[in-house]
């Protein structure tokens, strides 16, 4: 976190409620958070603590019930649906727990898709960009494969490449290793970390895996829809260990 920089994500007193019939379920309660460019932040907490909801609000795929969510200096509440979509397209990359690749497109086409939506690059430039990323994630040989011809780890690497292909300022990853074995999960986190350090891309990822959390510069701990604290990964590890002993 640097003092002179503007935060890429700024959340102030955000509340998010879900209605289940007549019952209102609070998912986030008075959350404040600032994330600065280049950070590699983990959001940790037990299931139902509000990790995914927080990521959804930052990712502009959902709106807060109250409070202010600003991404790249823009108050998301003031943006139209079209502007929100453009903000997602040009500023944010997504990595999903279940990879969420388009099953009928090849690896290359999946990664290329956001570039086609952006309409900024010509065909040759797109090809260069996609192949460069596929090289980085080690899938250049699999460019013509369909997602169902790949392992879970390979699919998640395609998802990482797709999230990064537009060179976004911010990448959001919702439990990116949850559906992978520990070795593959470790590779994915290493890859994200490498890209964070090389490209300076901001990463925010949710996890409840201590090993994954270990790689983060900072860990934002959530419980019952509230931020408990923002600590270093070592502090988070210690707190988790103490919690485990207490039980």
């Amino acid at each position: 976190m640097s003092a002179g920089q503007s935060p890429i994500v700024s959340i102030f007193d955000v509340t998010k409620d879900y209605s289940l019939g007549k019952v209102v379920v609070p998912a986030l309660r008075g959350v404040d958070l600032k994330v600065f460019p280049g950070e590699f932040i983990s959001i940790a907490g037990p299931s139902g603590s509000g990790k995914t909801t927080l990521l959804n609000l930052i990712g502009c795929v959902d709106t807060a019930t109250a409070g202010v969510v600003s991404v790249a200096g823009q108050d998301t509440k003031k943006l139209t649906e079209k502007e929100l979509t453009n903000l997602r397209l040009h500023t944010i990359g997504f990595i999903f727990q279940s990879f969420n690749l388009v099953s009928v497109l090849s690896v290359f086409q999946n990664v290329e898709f956001p570039l086609l939506l952006q309409r900024k690059l010509n065909k040759a430039e797109r090809k260069d960009r996609v192949m460069q990323l596929l090289e980085q994630v080690g899938l250049a040989q699999h460019e013509k494969h369909r997602p169902n011809e790949l392992s879970g780890g390979q699919r998640q690497r395609v998802a990482v490449a797709r999230a990064l292909v537009t060179r976004p300022q911010l990448v959001l990853a919702d439990e990116p290793t949850a559906n992978l074995d520990s070795v593959t999960g470790q590779h994915i986190i290493d890859l994200m970390k490498e890209l964070n350090q090389k490209e300076g891309t901001t990463f925010i990822f949710s996890t409840h895996d201590a090993k994954v959390m270990n790689h983060a510069n900072a860990v934002v701990r959530l419980a019952d829809g509230k931020i408990l604290d923002r600590v270093t990964s070592a502090e988070a590890q210690r707190a988790m260990a103490a919690g485990a002993e207490g039980h």
Binding site: G59, V61, E81, K82, T85, N86, R88, L89, H90, G93, F94, F96, N100, V102, S103, F113, P114, L117, Q118, R162, T166
Partner: peptide, 16 residues
């Protein structure tokens, strides 16, 4: 539906 959600999330406009 999930595919539509993903595509919308990564920046596909409604018209598309």
């Amino acid at each position: 539906t999930r595919e539509i959600g993903t595509l919308r999330a990564i920046g596909m406009q409604r018209s598309r």
